[in-house]
Design a protein around this nucleic acid. Structure first.
Lengths: 134, 134
DNA sequence: CTTGACCTTCCAGTGACTGGAAGCCTCATA
DNA sequence: TATGAGGCTTCCAGTCACTGGAAGGTCAAG
């Protein structure tokens, strides 16, 4: 298979596939003319990567997952640990965004949003009024 | 004020302050020796930026917000529009993460996580078993 | 006069691609 | 056989918002 076909079958842009080779996630062979020749195992790995990235795993996580994937003697605990770490990071991110969301939504709600210049959003961003201690 | 004091007062690393100057968010004057000299207005802007970035606004949004901030004839509707756009993006991101979270949590729940190699997480990432159509 | 804190600029790296230029390779058609 | 289209190659630069580090100038205290 050439890169164009793999692009379709794996659902990854050719650019990304070349990038994955560059960082050592896959090692396709080469034809005499320099073209990459992808074996079935390369395609499997790329599909695996496509799904793992789709679930938000980092490239480093993907590398570890791929290695466990092709290790028949793996312990599922190792896979679970990577996934759990990722889940924790997702939960932290969700919590952070929800906290931002609360503040932002309250500010937006209080802004009348018309032609007048006064605006609680800007007032909040400008910070508490300077207490003039002189 | 030198950059060190502003760093403390605005709660932004000196590196970041220099970066903000480089991209034109602030324009501190210079001393004869080349040091940056920050006026009160620079400090206000930096504090504003610190808060706006803390709420997750992009640098582009910050630029627009700063410009509205120093425009006495602004319409609060313009501020509200920027904030609302940002809120929408946050909501979209939260929804995306929650969707990932659901899939990931289900996979993790089904993985026994012991010494055995079989693992529903890897099975999912590997994709549906190839239906051999031959 | 030296030490140490503070300041400067410039360059490189982050993550994970993405866009584009310049140039082969291959195949089908005129 | 020439030509053109499309596919492939590498390499360089850009994304976003910084961050780290090197090399070197400035200043106040001891």
């Amino acid at each position: 298979m050439n890169i164009g076909e793999v692009e379709r079958l794996a659902g990854l842009p050719a650019k990304t596939i070349r990038y994955y080779e560059e960082i050592g996630l896959i090692r396709p062979r080469r034809e005499a003319n320099g073209y990459r020749r992808f074996a079935e195992t390369d395609l499997h790995k790329l599909r695996f990567l496509q799904r793992a990235r789709g679930l938000g795993f980092s490239i480093d996580d993907c590398r570890a997952l791929l290695s466990l994937y092709s290790d028949e003697t793996r312990a599922s605990a190792d896979v679970k640990a990577i996934a759990s770490g990722h889940l924790e990071r997702i939960d932290a991110k969700i919590a952070e965004l929800q906290s931002l969301r609360r503040v932002l939504a309250a500010l937006i709600k209080d802004c009348h949003g018309d032609q007048r210049p006064d605006c609680p959003i800007l007032e909040d961003l400008a910070g508490p009024p300077e207490s003039d201690l002189s």
